[in-house]
Amino acid sequence: MSEQAGNGNGGAGDATAQSFELKVGLAEMLKGGVIMDVVNPDQAKIAEDSGACAVMALERVPSDIRRDGGVARMCQVEIIESIQRTVSIPVMAKVRIGHYLEAQILDALGVDFIDESEVLTPADEEHHVDKFGFRSPFVCGARDLGEALRRISEGAAMIRTKGEAGSGNIVEAVRHLRTVFGQMRSLQALLPEEVPARAKELRAPLDLVQRVAETGCLPVPNFAAGGIATPADAALCRSLGAEAVFVGSGIFKSGDPAVLARAIVRATTHWDEPEELVAACRGLGKPMEGIEMETLSESQRLANRGW
């Protein structure tokens, strides 16, 4: 707790801020796991018993937010507290983009990770939260490398590709993973003097772009979210490079949540072992209904929120 983040993006001088190393450290510990959306302690318990490595507390799962409309906000404090009392695994919660007061409330509650999420209704259409000044680490969504690096420059300790939350359709998650990894691969092919122009194109800080060009990977763990509804979806995201997966509506909108949750955990661990995947896919209940992307207008697409 003594060290500062060091990237100089605000927050410095705040004695309560936690070092970036510790924040990324927890993200490292979540690799290879499944983070499950839950709306009450009973669901949180099912998630933990099924092998989730963390739960995400929220008021409504994305598919319900999509169906019911209205402003989607941070989860009620009592629900978060009851989930924290119920499970021993990390508890995450979402704040609206730019709503640093919601973030301060979650930080004071001691949540293990804050998701500044496009699934909720944005509070600020220009600025994301300055994430360095908090004790809790942040995860943010991204559709491409530039967006990922902008969030990291604001202090995000984990990136998740956005996909399209609540759609039950994996196509956007695949698009975003391929985009991020493809852009990282193409950066590695550049000569050093070509990197600044690419940084400009990506609208990302030069130092971070240079670092990716050298290492070929993001400086923080890179997970996938948005539309994962089956064990095979989870394995596909792992195969495309995601180090862990977030599953939102997919589990608790399915016919048998506990069975599907266990199956997705199994597929996330054994993503490159076809026999294990076959076993994971046996005996599943009815999956959630999916949505064709063509039926969603641009304004209905949650991934378009955030910049």
Binding site: M1, K23, Q84, G110, D112
Partner: peptide, 9 residues
Amino acid sequence: YGTQVDSFA
């Protein structure tokens, strides 16, 4: 030691 906010080096 508590939750992530109590993690330390």
